[in-house]
Design a binder for these strands. Sequence first.
DNA 1: AACGTTGCCAACCGCCATGCT
DNA 2: TAGCATGGCGGTTGGCAACGT
Length: 277
Amino acid sequence: MGRAPCCEKMGLKKGPWTPEEDQILISFIQQNGHGNWRALPKQAGLLRCGKSCRLRWTNYLRPDIKRGNFTKEEEDTIIQLHEMLGNRWSAIAAKLPGRTDNEIKNVWHTHLKKKLKDYKPPQNPKRHSKNHDSKGPTTSESSNNSHLTFIYTQKHIIDSSVPAPNSPQISSSTEMSTVTLVDDHQMVIKQEEMESSEYFPEIDESFWTDKLSTDNNWSNTHDHVMVTADQELQVQLPFSSLKEENVDMLTTKMEDDMDFWYNVFIKTDDLPELPEF
DNA sequence: AACGTTGCCAACCGCCATGCT
DNA sequence: TAGCATGGCGGTTGGCAACGT
């Protein structure tokens, strides 16, 4: 349809905003709000297009914008959410009050992508060949699927007295499980309060081959897992359903202090029917 | 000191979804 | 229901500063 970019109109300024322009925009929005971005610059006396005004406001001038470096917690959150949501920056930003999608996108591309490379396990160790090519965000694929996609998080809480996670000496762990609704198509599942005496495994390709093979002991170890959503819904998922063909992709190994967990995208085609949320 | 390279980040671009007429 | 206007989103770009040679 070729609608011309609004800024192509003659006489409209582009490029960095001046403090004076910022002040005009802030004052106008404080007094009048921003009901119509297209009309706003004319009303405010700015030689900018509405789109530029909106971006400047939402990304920089909004009073609730949190400026400054990202904390480690925020970075971890972004990494986790990115594993779940892919490049859905606005959805990620919604989980980080005061941060904008643009800012998060920049941080991801400049810092976190590199950081993640350092500790990410071998990319896509169990990415099954069927219906998937080898690139593209896992979640956008997932959310485009007609079936629900679950993200299963296996979390091991390690006793501080035991050696490092890669060591086979770890003698006990507790697995946790909860479900939170991420969006219409995704949930995060964590195991909850399930005793496990298995060693904390070294995660690599062979781990998933072993664990997810048809006769794996992992999925059969815990027959049912209680999961909750928003503290209201409780369902039981039979772990025995988690067979290799259900697992879309192992994503990131996450760690902080004593905790380690792994995200796994799980197709639910063969899982039991779940109640409506 | 001058020049080239790299990294960062604000801003822009184009597409899509939604709402209105 | 179609067409248009607008807002929102993700990808990309361009300018600037820091750093290296």
